[in-house]
Amino acid sequence: MPRPATDKRERLTAAAASLAHTRGLERTTLGDIAAEAGVAPGSVYYYFKTKDDVGLAVVEALLERYRSRFEDWNGAEDPRDRLSAYIDSYVADEPAIRASGCPVGTLATEARKLSEDLGDAAASVLRITIDWAAEQFEELGFAPEAARARALHLVTGIQGAATLANALGEAEPLEREAAHLKRWVANTSA
């Protein structure tokens, strides 16, 4: 039975996100995306006219993914547990991070090289993550400026560890930083 045409954009976006993460956005062609999604190459142009269109679709997919994760994590009663869930998600993704880097950090870095607008769009995933983490620290009693500083430290730590794990091809930097950040979060009080 043929797939509905309405899911074609979703399949193309999922293929683009996967390839952008494993190969890099710049090295991913529209033909690669079509092959990965199992669609005719010509139909890709209907959805994505430019590399920026592909990048923006990948950013939207990541925004959706992170918003969904925030919803799930917000189910925990204690903000410390929510922040720990964020850290744990990186440890759970360690094999993919070690092989290809963090899908968010890697995309944001590469997108900025392709265009300022695409770089800003990709950075929005990091911005909403920092904002979400700051909300958790505010709930723990920190003033907004202090909560934001802590959130920035948390996201910087996990992104840096992900970058180092990828660069070295080793799990240790991510595992050690995640353990350190979890202890730091557990002992956090305003």
Rank of each mutant, 00 (worst) to 15 (best):
R82C: 13
D81C: 10
I87F: 05
R80T: 07
S89N: 07
A99R: 11
A108R: 09
A92Q: 12
E110M: 07
I97T: 12
D88Q: 10
E77G: 14
G75V: 13
S115Y: 01
D81Y: 07
D117A: 15
E116A: 15
L83E: 05
K113C: 04
A92W: 01
S89C: 06
V104Y: 01
G105M: 09
R80Y: 00
S115F: 00
G105L: 14
D78F: 07
P103V: 01
I87V: 15
G105V: 14
S115D: 13
V91M: 07
A76S: 15
E116P: 05
K113F: 02
E77Q: 12
A76Q: 15
E110V: 07
P79H: 03
T109K: 14
C102D: 08
E94F: 02
A108G: 06
L83P: 11
P79W: 08
Y90I: 10
A96Q: 12
I97W: 02
G101W: 01
D93C: 07
R80A: 08
L107S: 04
R112M: 13
E94M: 11
V91T: 13
P79V: 06
S84N: 11
S84G: 09
G101H: 01
D81P: 10
G101R: 01
K113A: 12
T109C: 04
P79L: 07
T106E: 10
L107D: 04
S100I: 02
A85H: 10
D93H: 11
A92H: 09
L107H: 02
R112K: 14
D117E: 15
C102W: 05
T106M: 08
P95F: 00
P95R: 01
E110L: 08
I87K: 08
P103K: 10
E94K: 11
E116F: 11
